[in-house]
Design a protein around this nucleic acid. Structure first.
Lengths: 209, 209
DNA sequence: AATTATAATTTTGTATACAAAATACAAAAC
DNA sequence: GTTTTGTATTTTGTATACAAAATTATAATT
């Protein structure tokens, strides 16, 4: 027997990937025995992984009935974006209070490779975008906020077919956010963050309804 | 054997109560076999409960070492209050967008029994306070925000020795929040919520440092 | 043929079993 | 007297076992 320190971790990643890729379809029932067999583990670590996914709202439990892949409604996408707005506004304020100039420079540099470019590599920009939002949370050094932010990670499922908006549109917003942070202008930073998320949310509302 | 639909639920409640009351002290190791025995269940539902508590950050896991009751630092209390500020500001905005006048009246009525009173029953007021904040989240009808709010439930541990501030001080704030919501004044509501939480946070910082 | 009742099966929730790792403890070495 | 090393014990992480509930299949009745 291969002795992992925590087998439920790789199982969690695997199931999450299966949900994200659509191998496990929204609404589908997760048959524990079968899924555990496919992954080569027993039900014990699988159930632990599934429970974490339930806490992240990627999976739903109906007691005595089973666990199901959550089918996301357009309303829920909007809801997540409302939450992200709160989380990232707090992040902006905390960063201004706590982050050093060097840290803010690191944040700024994430988008440097794209400035002034005629054509922007979408896959590279997507990664930069994720890195930017992750670093935004990281710089707050607030563990609870990070946990909250992970809850809004449902957006990574939404993003599965690419970015919500084109790089040409969001690049300027990202730069304006960073500049406000560097100026230590709380009001401007919050307003830019709010604007950035609300614009994406509006696009999602249009696309999904 | 008594067949519960989900035994981990009452176990979760029991362990949470034990942590809150101090029966399980901060930093203490949770010996699964022993604890399961005390609660009259096997390790399986206990571990499920403990994992939920870990997700709520009331319990910490050291792989292959065990689970420990989280010892909260004063910094973490501040962190939670920063998060609550974000969550409840979003809640205020969403309520103004979505809640009906009747719902807002229900919210207002929570504090009616205390208005004009010379002496305020602290235990009744504590319950009203909890109900107010819970309803604030409920009225947003945003499931993700509710989950996020549960993460800031650590404050319920902080509250274990009673309210952070006296009813005489917070009653007026609660009323001002509700009135701003009823006026559908987003800016005022957000500002009142922010003020309310920040004042409590400041008291906590003083008491815990 | 449609509906209900009954039996077979699958699946969940919980308990138990067991190997690997961590801890505790005692004896030996310095 | 302290540190080291080896052994016993405990504890964790995972697998398996099993009863109760849920689902499906089959038979019986209208």
């Amino acid at each position: 027997m291969i002795q992992h320190s925590d087998l439920s971790k790789p199982v969690y990643d695997a199931v999450k990937a299966m949900i994200k890729s659509g191998v496990l379809a929204p609404g589908e029932k997760l048959k524990q025995e079968k899924l555990a067999g496919q992954l080569g583990v027993s039900r014990t670590p699988l159930m632990k992984a599934l429970q974490n996914l339930e806490n992240e709202m990627l999976v739903e439990s109906r007691p005595r009935r089973g666990l199901y892949v959550k089918a996301i409604t357009s309303q829920e996408i909007i809801d997540v974006y409302d939450c992200r707005e709160g989380v990232e506004c707090v992040a902006a304020r905390l960063i201004i209070e706590r982050a050093t100039d060097e840290e803010l420079l690191d944040l700024k540099q994430i988008f440097d490779p794209f400035i002034g470019k005629e054509v922007i590599d979408v896959s590279k920009y997507t990664l930069a975008d994720e890195k930017f939002h992750d670093m935004l949370i990281e710089l707050t050094k607030n563990a609870t906020l990070k946990k909250m932010s992970e809850l809004s990670n449902i957006h990574k499922r939404v993003y599965q077919y690419g970015l919500v908006r084109l790089p040409e549109e969001t690049l300027a917003e990202h730069i304006r956010i960073t500049e406000a942070l560097i100026r230590r202008d709380v009001r401007a930073a919050e307003s830019e963050v709010r604007n950035h998320i609300q614009l994406s949310r509006e696009v999602l509302i249009k696309n999904y309804s």
